[in-house]
Amino acid sequence: MTHTINSTIYGELLLHYQPRIIKTEAENEQFLEMVEELLARPNLSPEEDALLELLIKLIEDFEEKNYQINASTPHSRLLHLMDAQNLQPSDLVGLLGSSDAVTKIINGEAEITEEQAQVLGKFFHVAPELFLRN
């Protein structure tokens, strides 16, 4: 389902958050805080969801360019999002099917499937591709 974005509301969000290419570690930290603030909200509007995607893309671009040695993985992204929302593995059981599946994913013993990535993307309001290996 595609949501229509209200350009006035989205423009106000852009004015408030002022997303831009991240050039310094301090800016990256600031953008990470913005993402965590948005993730803490119970129900994001389509405009907030679009802003969240944009902020995550800007952070990913900065970190990919500056942290090649410790490049993030689908596993580390999941753990980061769980930490940002204070979620426990048990909170994902209903999404991923079983506690065994969640345990294997959390422990890095199993890859996240495309179907699981879709569910996680919807749950965390991020692109499902974040949970899949390139």
Score class of each variant (00 low, 15 high):
G11N: 09
E12V: 06
L13V: 05
L14E: 11
L15F: 10
H16R: 14
Y17C: 01
Y17H: 08
Y17N: 03
Q18T: 10
R20Q: 12
R20M: 03
R20K: 14
I22Q: 02
I22F: 05
K23P: 00
K23T: 13
A26T: 11
A26P: 03
E27F: 01
E29I: 07
E29V: 05
Q30F: 07
L32Q: 09
E33M: 04
E33L: 08
M34T: 04
M34F: 11
E36N: 08
E37H: 05
L38H: 01
L39E: 06
A40S: 13
P42W: 00
P46K: 04
D49Y: 10
A50W: 00
L52F: 02
K57V: 11
D61Y: 09
D61T: 15
E64L: 14
N66D: 10
Q68A: 15
Q68E: 15
N70Q: 14
P74D: 09
S76V: 09
L79C: 05
L79G: 08
M82I: 07
D83C: 07
A84K: 11
Q85I: 04
L87E: 10
L87D: 07
S90D: 13
S90E: 15
L92H: 05
L95Q: 10
L95S: 09
G97A: 11
S98M: 10
D100I: 14
A101H: 07
K104M: 08
K104V: 02
I106D: 04
I112Q: 06
E114L: 11
E115Y: 10
Q116C: 02
K122I: 07
F124Q: 04
